[in-house]
Design a protein around this nucleic acid. Structure first.
Lengths: 334, 334
DNA sequence: TCGCGGTGCGCAATCGCTTGCTCGAATCGC
DNA sequence: GCGATTCGAGCAAGCGATTGCGCACCGCGA
């Protein structure tokens, strides 16, 4: 018996007075084993403080308990939470991960794939950059399952997880209507942006369902900046249109809008309520009114993609939408 | 020979007409091998596209090529970049990582340590929460090296990596003096906070070295918020003290200060230049003047801690300070 | 010519665990 | 009561690499 070294399954077996294979089966659950023997082995295992050598196990099984993670832009403001969500979910399930930056020139790609294959990874999570929502499909390069987070591929059957943009719009609209607002405008980025489009649609749909319609024929579409928020809100106020709430496509726009509203001598939320999207700590807690915002739950997006690799139960091919969450603060309720 | 399966070292050996052991030595560099044989094996390896099974290799070597990562608060605004920095650095070096949330109740700790040990990890990076800068020492729990990022332990010899707060203060002061400012005030959080204290010290030292001293006897110490920035700046202006620049302890304070300065009818940077700390995307690019800020390079902090595990060259026990970087924007130069 | 040291390479053990197959014993059915 | 099942457990073969040891062969000096 080993002394001073890690205790192996062999030690457990000999203490329990059974063979190695029996000990293995007793602990891992498989095979036909009498309850009594199983218990005896378990006792021995506990008594010796047996820690199975995960490395050896992985080796024998041919599975590494390791998931490959390919990122396009790991340090991006939006992608970081996705990465972290995936990371933590894998950690919780005792999966190691091997991260590689997925630069997509052919040589690097080959190299990345080879490295992952060499580690006999059990699956791959590909994390998009969340901007274009467009990600190259790498599914066919691997023999193991691949899921995508925060991006769409051109392959219809690729399993991807993305924030539910329409839901964000709905939540915002419903919350504003619930708090008594009726004249709601929408300031957002260009509708060429899928996220902006989705939010606008959910917003419009939710209002329509209650027989209302947004202020203005179309959303005020510009870009995602503070500056655009200022400009659009100012324009809106100057037009004389009656408005009692603005749904802003993101927090920066909302922050800009707030600034314009205050500059016009109005108050948030008394005169105009504001809802943003992104729930961006740095923004939402600053400013005079703390901003009600839709949290896209990006960590959940990453976590969902990771989870889909660990258990395929209930995972459908195609695009899966991850729900977002409304965080109410003082920009909509006094 | 295997068909349709991954090619093994055995395949390479038989193609090269040598034994397994010779092939191994030829590829891994050790042992006495004639140059000719080595070349023959390498050719065969290339021709077959041999990818060594990293899992088997790890197993045989007893090293897993996996690093354990313990986090205290993975999703924190400040800790996330540190985690990502460590993560990416490990990925670049083909180290897998196994993340566990380091809750420090006894049971969870034991469990975490056991899980990591079971995977035969080669090292541990412990990532602090960056707030208290105080992290429990876990070095003695592992037989493998442990480094700390973004936190300090009570053990003098623990290898830790932290942002260089004094340098942040120095960089700010020097930049402001370089651009002609002389009457520089400092608005920051409570000096009980080590980061605030360090920045204030570096700031004061750098000014003293040029025969100047900060405006006011002591920094205006409050908290890290926008609100405090507004208040402190307003107070400063109201006091009538001559001021041509303010070094703010973080970006939120700076953003608040800018707001107060503009409210007083002054202009940034014409009348008063502003420097923040954190280089927080969400803040620095908004507002009228884009904010000059000190980037604490948190990713570098994580990366440094990771790197110290991979190669101990030049790593000193104790606290290692990671340099920060000045990012010049329009709040200090017109 | 013999002996010796050094060089190049292969044999076989090893790492710790999983698993297909086999075998003995106990149980069951007729 | 005896053959047919079934159940429990062990044997031994992998998994794919690394590595200590020994063997054959070479060249050189005596």
């Amino acid at each position: 018996m080993n002394v001073g070294k890690a205790v192996t399954l062999g030690d457990v077996a000999s203490v329990a007075g059974v063979s190695l294979s029996t000990a293995s089966r007793a602990l891992s659950g498989g095979g036909r084993i009498s309850e009594e023997t199983r218990q005896r082995v378990k006792d021995a295992s506990d008594r010796l403080g047996f820690q199975p050598n995960a490395l050896a196990r992985s080796f024998a099984l041919g599975r590494s308990q390791t998931i490959g993670v390919l990122t396009q832009n790991a340090s991006g403001v939006f992608t970081a939470p996705v990465l972290i969500g995936a990371t933590m979910e894998l950690g919780r399930n005792n999966q190691a991960l091997l991260i590689r930056d997925a630069r997509f020139d052919a040589a690097t790609l080959t190299e990345n794939v080879a490295r992952l294959q060499a580690r006999r990874i059990d699956g791959v999570v590909m994390i998009g950059d969340g901007l274009s929502y467009s990600v190259p499909s790498v599914t066919s390069l691997f023999r193991v399952p691949v899921t995508y987070a925060f991006g769409l591929t051109s392959e219809r059957d690729d399993v991807s997880f993305n924030p539910d943009a329409e839901m964000a719009g709905r939540l915002a609209a419903e919350h504003l209507m619930d708090t008594g607002r009726r004249r709601i405008a929408h300031i957002t980025a260009s509708l060429d942006d899928p996220a902006a489009r989705g939010r606008a649609k959910g917003f419009g749909d939710a209002m329509a369902e209650r027989g209302l319609s947004p202020v203005g024929e179309r959303p005020l579409a510009g870009d995602w900046t503070f500056g655009w928020g200022v400009e659009a809100a100012a324009r809106l106020l100057a037009s004389g249109t009656e408005v009692d709430a603005v749904f802003c496509g993101n927090d920066q726009i909302a922050f800009g809008a707030e600034s314009a509203i205050r500059a016009a001598g109005l108050e948030v939320p008394r005169d105009i309520a504001l809802v943003g999207v992104d729930n961006w700590e740095a923004m939402v807690t600053e400013g005079a009114a703390r901003l009600t915002s839709i949290d896209p739950c990006l960590q959940d997006v990453g976590a969902a993609a990771a989870r889909a690799l660990l258990s395929t139960d209930g995972v459908l091919p195609g695009v899966n939408l991850v729900p977002c969450r409304l965080i109410v603060r003082s920009s909509t309720t006094s």
